[in-house]
């Protein structure tokens, strides 16, 4: 992957880091074959806070999210240029191990996708893979703690050996969150985690996100303004592949600087 982007534009809109940035992106461009999906995005994502990405459909929110754990590597036609660092380390450095990166940057997908295995196995898979537990007792502990952290344990403690696919949609999504946090990531990426859920399940997940904020850096993509306003401290607005505006959630929702942001959050397009 080339880091010297031919698309580099004037670094005019590089934001000043307001807080200690966990993830920093500079001049990120993404092409899907001929299609220029993400255009010169530069943004800082602060540690131990929730950052939400909003914007109309197809504007590149998911694309950018997937750049942060290099999930785009699995798409052959996808080409990423620019620089993304986590704790100051370039994650596109060829010497960096992608697999370990993905362990450090967990991901929760739009549609709950538990493995068709038991609830226990779903959570235990990651820790076992990385040798995080020396024995069964330790593994049990990790599984139970992760489930507790994901506010799921009380509901499933009697049926840890039942298939994860047998849970309700909201429970499945919390299982996926438990699975993601079981490998002790530093950053958790969530791509519309509540879009398939009813309001009660959504409220639970939001509550959970708020709790997780104390330990993890969370990035969430959402189509719900209310959700962004409720759970996030910082918000970034994307439009047609560009990052239009980024700032504290309060500022974006009360006093947007850009007209497009204003139009979007007031529901005039999108």
């Amino acid at each position: 992957m080339s880091f010297a982007s031919p698309m580099i534009q004037e670094p005019a809109s590089v934001p000043e880091p307001a807080v200690a940035a966990k993830v920093a992106a500079r001049h990120v461009n993404v092409h899907y074959g001929e299609k220029h999906a993400l255009k010169d995005v530069s943004v800082d994502i602060p540690a131990r806070a929730v950052t939400s990405f909003i914007g109309p459909s197809g504007c590149g929110k998911s694309t950018f999210l997937r750049c942060i754990n290099r999930m785009n590597d699995t798409i052959p036609i996808c080409r990423v240029t620019g620089e993304i660092t986590i704790d100051g380390k370039d994650i596109y450095d060829p010497r960096l191990d992608v697999v370990l990166l993905r362990a450090r940057v967990g991901m929760v997908f739009q549609k709950p996708n538990p493995f068709p295995k038991s609830i226990y196995e779903n959570v235990a898979y990651g820790p076992r893979l990385h040798g995080m537990a020396k024995n069964k007792t330790e593994l049990d502990e990790i599984v139970v703690n992760s489930l507790k952290r994901a506010s799921l344990f009380e509901e499933v403690k009697d049926r840890l050996n039942d298939p994860g696919t047998g849970l309700s949609g909201g429970q499945q999504q919390r299982l996926c969150i438990a699975r993601a946090i079981a490998v002790s990531p530093e950053v958790i990426l969530m791509d519309e985690p509540c879009s398939a859920l009813d309001p009660i399940a959504t409220a639970k997940i939001e509550e959970l996100i708020d709790e997780l904020r104390s330990n993890f850096t969370i990035v969430i993509v959402t189509h719900s303004m209310q959700q962004a306003a409720r759970v996030s401290q910082r918000t970034a607005f994307f439009h047609l592949g560009s990052l239009v505006e980024e700032g504290s959630t309060e500022q974006i929702f009360t006093n947007p600087k850009d007209k497009r942001t204003q139009d979007y959050i007031t529901g005039r397009f999108g």
Binding site: T74, V99, R102, G106, N113, P114, P116, Y125, L129, V183
Partner: peptide, 23 residues
Amino acid sequence: VPPSIKEAALGVGASHQQAIFHH
């Protein structure tokens, strides 16, 4: 097999080969 299963495995830090052989 839906790609979401593979993505889930990759998401928790499984290598490509692990994702395929385990899931």
